[in-house]
């Protein structure tokens, strides 16, 4: 790897604007809603970024821009240097930045797991032998090899979502955007999906942009971006973000329970750090309280 390649920017947005229009019966514009409001964001290659925000904060709209499903009303968005507004970049962008959606049922196309994973590379016009190789690799990467020839209907939500991830993976993307992939899953399925994307980020060095409204899912991220009303309001490491309990509450977001506990303990005059994310850290911190007096 060349020096400096680590810091290569995969996503660059400058003053990105997107407006939804509501039309009346005559086709005139009745009202407009600004979903993205001059948004600036840079994401480096290999990062694990979590985008947080409550409903209507524009996080899904942003995701759809990164895959060139929606086109910006104003400003620019570059995916690995390719402008999303340029129609000729469309397929390259979609291959570079793969997308996983919320509903696992509505993104699996074929009636057999391996056929579905092959769907992406088949669309790219890749040689049959190479497709076979990619399908096997991708299914192994999400640890679903034993379900290769099963029907997706018989799989659990978490398993279906892992298949959807494998389907994107088979297109050899550099970046995977996951638009609330865990919203419809049970806790077990959520854990499966999170472990899978975390592993892909560490082992395969794939940039992950994970959009969610579950705070716990952001703990392991390299970077957390908080959105509100189409703007980025916070952008830092999870530790720094979650320690600002009051600001997050104002934005209508929760913080991990232990962090909240630490926050209230500090308020009560106990000398404890609020940069606590897990129960283990909390235990260590309480453990050391006495010696700190």
């Amino acid at each position: 790897m060349k020096a400096g390649e680590d810091m290569e920017k995969i996503i660059t947005s400058k003053g990105l604007i997107y407006e939804y229009y509501t039309h009346n019966d005559k086709g005139e514009i009745e009202s407009k809603h600004r979903a993205l409001d001059e948004l600036n964001l840079e994401i480096q290659k290999g990062q694990f970024v979590v985008i947080l925000g409550h409903n209507g904060s524009g996080k899904s709209t942003l995701a759809k821009h990164m895959n060139a499903i929606l086109h910006p009303t104003g400003g620019t968005l570059l995916i690995k240097g390719m402008d999303v507004k340029d129609q000729k970049n469309l397929w390259d962008i979609r291959q570079t930045a793969g997308m996983v959606f919320q509903n696992p049922d509505n993104q699996i196309i074929a009636a057999i797991v391996e056929e579905d994973v092959a769907f992406g590379p088949e669309n790219l016009g890749i040689e049959p032998k190479e497709i076979r190789k990619r399908v096997d690799e991708s299914i192994n990467a999400v640890q679903m090899a034993e379900y290769m020839t099963h029907s997706p209907n018989l799989l659990s939500g978490g398993q279906k979502q892992r298949i959807a991830i494998a389907g994107v993976l088979a297109m050899k993307p550099e970046c995977i955007i996951l638009d609330e992939p865990t919203a419809m899953l049970d806790p077990v399925g959520r854990k499966e999906v999170l472990e899978t994307i975390y592993r892909l980020n560490k082992k395969e060095n794939i940039t992950i942009i994970h959009i969610t409204h579950y705070m716990e899912e952001a703990i392991k991220a390299d970077r957390v971006v908080v959105m509100d009303r189409g703007k980025i309001v916070m952008d830092d490491t999870p530790r720094k973000i979650f320690s600002q309990v009051e600001k997050l509450k104002e934005l209508g977001l929760d913080v991990p329970q232990v962090t909240e506990l630490a926050f209230y303990m500090q308020k009560q005059g106990i000398n404890i750090s609020t940069e606590i994310l897990t129960i283990e850290e909390m235990v260590d911190e309480i453990w050391q309280l006495n010696s700190r007096k």
């Binding site: 499903i69 979609r94 291959q95 793969g98 056929e115 092959a118 088949e122 790219l124 297109m171």
Partner: peptide
């Protein structure tokens, strides 16, 4: 939308695994 996101653009230039 999911099909388009996975680069589906009709039958032209499409290959098959099997």
């Amino acid at each position: 939308m999911a099909m388009e996101a996975r680069c589906y653009r009709g039958g032209e230039n499409r290959t098959r695994m099997k």
